[in-house]
Amino acid sequence: MAEMIQLSVFRYDPEKGGKPFMQAYEVPVSGPGMKLLDALNYIKWQLDGTLTYRRSCGEGVCGSDGLNINGINGLACITPIAGLKQPIHVRPLPSMEVIRDLVVDMDHFFDQYRQIQPWLQAVTPMPEHERLQSPAQRAELDGQYECILCGCCTTACPSWWWNGDRFLGPATLLQANRWIVDSRDEAMGDRLDQLEDAFRLYRCHQIMNCMEACPKELNPTAAIDNIKRKILARKS
């Protein structure tokens, strides 16, 4: 007999109505490297075809399967089963509207991303060759550009839970900073103007849940801090 693991998974079926509930499943361990996504796939493919969740790459780069795992946000595909307290409580990302089971509505999250105009803005005519950027300038982008937009940080942020309609949240602010620190971007002033707002930026109270939650080990709090410093610097 293979070793079994116990899971308790959040279920909600909008067609049947009723309250959400936690459902227990038992899954055999497939190997030492088994990830939570393997367990969810086992449930879906062997036990219960109605279990609903998102997944794509299965290796932590696409950002589809952000979930709340034993109370901590993370990606199912890179979270090892070993070391998780059982039964493993699997819930959708907190504070999000649930569409079904573990699938949440990401529209508002992506709308906020769009709001910061996350694209390179420059008025200088394009050079014939690439825009030059020194390795040191490029190193400024490390820890910024790797974000996969999974939403784990933003949905772990209490400030975003309270004021998510107006506070942009850590993922979006990290991306705002990604353009502010890019030596090729020429719109820093406009970007700071847009962010200098009691809600959009300053609802960050450095709780630092975002940093704890990020599956790519990025640090949105530091990025937000950098934006605040940039705003402060131009006042003096």
């Binding site: 694209w119 030059l132 950027q133 490029r138």
Partner: peptide, 19 residues
């Protein structure tokens, strides 16, 4: 590739600043 660079792809760089 240069167009991608102009669009903002964060390519790694050589000492002279090129891709």
């Amino acid at each position: 590739v240069r167009e991608l660079e102009h669009q903002g792809v964060p390519f790694s760089r050589l000492e002279d600043g090129t891709v």
